[in-house]
Design a protein around this nucleic acid. Structure first.
Lengths: 202, 202
DNA sequence: ACCTGAACACCGTTCAAGT
DNA sequence: ACCTGAACACCGTTCAAGT
């Protein structure tokens, strides 16, 4: 056959990425196979390796988009009161995870072959999400030392992520989305109440 | 060859389970392959399917042991003060996760083919872990309605799990184990402080 | 009755060969 | 230069055939 020059390499790369992303969204990570992507875009398997080093590379680029999406959602949160802002960020995160479950899950399900080989541009995207959270803690306690604030943001955000993960993936027990939202609200409110108290007492 | 009757089927099942568990502990979930297990116990691949329905069945039995181990560790926690008890439970959980990272990770990494097909005996083990947590909340607020208490336990435990997961698997950022323990302590203390306050105000 | 090992259907990845 | 498609090494799983 040889569909030479029908698409540029950049166009082909976009085709592969879009097709792969769609498969993940609609059928989950486990349905993502090289041959399947090839069929979807009307090329053969080999072509994928012209534009991506391997499946790990392709997966990383899908995950990068997911990180961008999450960051974009969090950027839109704009509550004037700091505590309300943090709660809104948490609910926005849960909402994204719930509505984009398959791609959100792949973000955490996929393990990089060697953990130290995560490229800088990808790590930047991971940090971008977390930075938005930390930023809201600046608003909450401007006087607080950066170390303390970062640790608090880390603890709470790990918490919000954990509640979302256990609930949505049905590991610990089975809840509906409203219960999860309530759990997230409970965690955020009580943590912040306790933390602000201990911070202003210093 | 045919090593007939050298082991009973029950002995063979134990051999397979032990070998598989060891592989997971030492090399992680991704190293667990049917042929590898067979080599390790001196049988051929087919034998595994005499004692386990498939790899999913084998994995579930390894995970069941992990759940038992976690439950046993949590049972040993015996702090008189309720808030100290919850914190000790959280630190014990983190400690187990850190020291048994590979098998702990498989517990959450592995997805059941159909989520509704998790057998009752396995779910019981999942609940056993969570029940210990809930129990400590009874001690913390005996007057509290069960619904509220369960939700609080769920929120906090999801939180403790999330901080452990993001930190140990190096997803959000990279921390050493001491920092993680501090984050867990921060989450637990501040949550409990806020929650007890809002509960006694009722 | 227990166990083998060859076979099957799938994977990811490569690369000589075509246009 | 771009793309194919057959090949390779590896998976999980099955099952007729051996002892």
């Amino acid at each position: 056959m040889a569909r030479r020059s029908e698409h540029s390499l950049e166009e082909l790369k976009a085709l592969v990425l879009d097709a792969a992303e769609t498969i993940v969204i609609e059928e989950g990570f486990s349905a993502l196979k090289a041959r399947r992507v090839a069929v979807e875009i009307g090329y053969t398997v080999g072509s994928i390796y012209m534009v991506f080093a391997n499946m790990a590379d392709l997966i990383m680029h899908i995950n990068a988009r997911t990180l961008d999406n999450i960051a974009a959602q969090l950027e839109q949160v704009n509550e004037p009161a700091a505590d309300q802002c943090i709660e809104a960020l948490a609910q926005t995160y849960l909402s994204y995870a719930s509505q984009n479950f398959n791609r959100w899950l792949m973000l955490f399900e996929y393990r990089f072959p060697q953990n130290n080989a995560i490229p800088a541009w990808y790590q930047k995207k991971q940090y971008a999400v977390f930075d938005r959270i930390e930023q809201s803690f600046v608003q909450l306690a401007p006087e607080c030392a950066e170390d303390r604030r970062r640790q608090a943001a880390h603890a709470l955000w790990g918490g919000v992520h954990g509640v979302s993960m256990l609930s949505l993936s049905g590991k610990l027990d089975r809840n509906n989305i409203n219960d999860v939202a309530e759990s997230v609200a409970l965690l955020v409110r009580n943590f912040i109440r306790g933390w602000v108290e201990s911070t202003t007492h210093l």
